[in-house]
Amino acid sequence: MSVSANDNAARPSLRGFLAKYSVLIAFAAIVIFFSVASPTFLTPANLFNVLVNNVVMLAIVALGLTIVISSGGIDLSVGVSVDMASMVFVMLLAAGYSGVTGVAGGLGAALIVGVLNAILITRLNISPFLATLGVLFIGQSTQQLATSGGQPIYLTSGYAADQFNAIARTALFGVPTPVIVLIVLAFAVHVLLHRSVFGRYVQAMGAQPGVAWYSGIRVSRELSMVHVLCALLAGATGILLSATVKSYVPLSGNAFLLDAIGATFIGTTLSRERKPSVIGTLLGVLLLAIVKNGLLLVGWNFYWQQVGIGVLVFLVLAASFGLRRAAH
């Protein structure tokens, strides 16, 4: 057993290579394809637009999901965390509170969602899928109740609102501020997940929960932390979203859910054990964003874009896992 594994490591086959780097290969192929197909694709203006509008927010939500999926769970309520943070943030700013209060309130709202998930999962022993699905339903209804059936709230010009909007639209040394926020958060989550004691516990719970428990790990506490962190990251996305568009649109956060899950799973193809990783997730997000943008540029309509993404996710996962199985 160990001998054959050694041989594989010593002489990586072509199949093994393709399996390991299927995301990168797909990524390169798609960039080349759209560069040829559309003259605007590879322009700085377009890439800037993709990064700020399609990548940053999805990536931050996906970072949270990467932690949750690493722990062996799932969070279907990330959209609710996005929305609740966005709603409270916009309501506070609209009522004339300061930006700091708005951010604190927004993150506080997301925190409540995370704590609720944690209680349902670790105290009531409900499976993460069902617990967060329930919170998703409750969260959607709550928003509709709070906004008389789903009316958006717009931020008219005011000091704090304009300031946030300005931050969201500026750049530091040529790098858009939201991108800097993403880089900082991605680095922090990377260290947390791949270098810290907490991250090691999360990986152990994801790999074999029984072993984590038998090793004296406080599984409930660590799992609670996982869900709170995920909700807070989604909450940060909600605040960033509202600052960018100067409004809160009820139930808009759900758009992130499936893309973020897709990106995380595309990222797992980088690892032989199919473990989620921050770098993998970021690649997954970039891949999805570029495909969406590229299909738009070559003139595909919105509905066909969804088909395109579905086919892409399928191909990357199938190529990676299929080739890897064949290589073994």
Partner: peptide, 19 residues
């Protein structure tokens, strides 16, 4: 089920309880 996590490395398993 409870002794070693098969999907983790030798290193991660050995240090798990004493990180």
């Amino acid at each position: 089920a409870h002794g070693v996590a098969l999907g983790l490395s030798v290193r991660e398993n050995i240090s798990l309880a004493s990180l």
